[in-house]
């Protein structure tokens, strides 16, 4: 269905860009937040910023991914995630098997806690890379030299794994 915004002062390429990139932008935010609903909130916020921007269409995918990841990390750190959403998710997940659902939620929570502990740039590089951005794109987005993207991502992955292993061994 197509229902473009009624006012004529938004960028003309908004709907095609939205439809082409929305799912991927949600996926990128979901990697940070661990919740598809929260990720959709972030994606909507980011597309609104995009609608008001003059970012060239060709640069839209990178811009949207970067904006989504930064915004999602900001949400993660500020604790702005919706408690109600988490409750809802809990209820949904609990239905088939309570024990499995609790394990999944615990695991997701640990990942988010670990992600929130990483330096912002490391966390952003990690998620952008795992969202499919090239090393060159990650470098440009985060003002890194192309050569240091691998190092930054590597450190983030190593720290994330250590953090998760520490939790696992303390259980």
């Amino acid at each position: 269905m197509s229902s473009p915004p009624a006012r004529g002062d938004v960028r003309a390429d908004l709907e095609p860009v939205f439809r082409a990139d929305y799912a991927r932008v949600v996926a990128a935010a979901a990697r940070v937040l661990g919740s598809p609903d929260d990720a959709e909130d972030v994606a909507q916020e980011v597309f609104l910023a995009f609608s008001r921007s003059v970012v060239p269409a060709a640069e839209a995918p990178r811009w949207l991914h970067v904006a989504a990841v930064h915004t999602a990390l900001n949400v993660l750190r500020s604790g702005r995630r919706r408690a109600s959403r988490e409750h809802a998710a809990r209820e949904d997940d609990v239905a088939p098997d309570v024990a499995d659902a609790v394990v999944v939620l615990d695991e997701r929570g640990r990942v988010r806690a670990a992600l929130a502990k990483l330096p912002h740039k490391q966390a952003a590089a990690l998620v952008l890379r795992h969202s499919g951005l090239s090393y060159a794109d990650v470098a440009a987005a985060l003002d890194l030299s192309p050569g240091s993207v691998g190092t930054t991502v590597r450190r983030a992955e190593s720290a994330l794994r250590k953090e998760l292993n520490a939790h696992a061994s303390s259980d």
């Binding site: 269905m1 197509s2 990697r31």
Partner: peptide
């Protein structure tokens, strides 16, 4: 660890 299944309804999202 980062993988979070998300399958947004793009039509619904666009209407919102």
């Amino acid at each position: 660890a980062l993988h979070t299944p998300a399958a947004p309804d793009v039509d619904l999202a666009w209407r919102r």
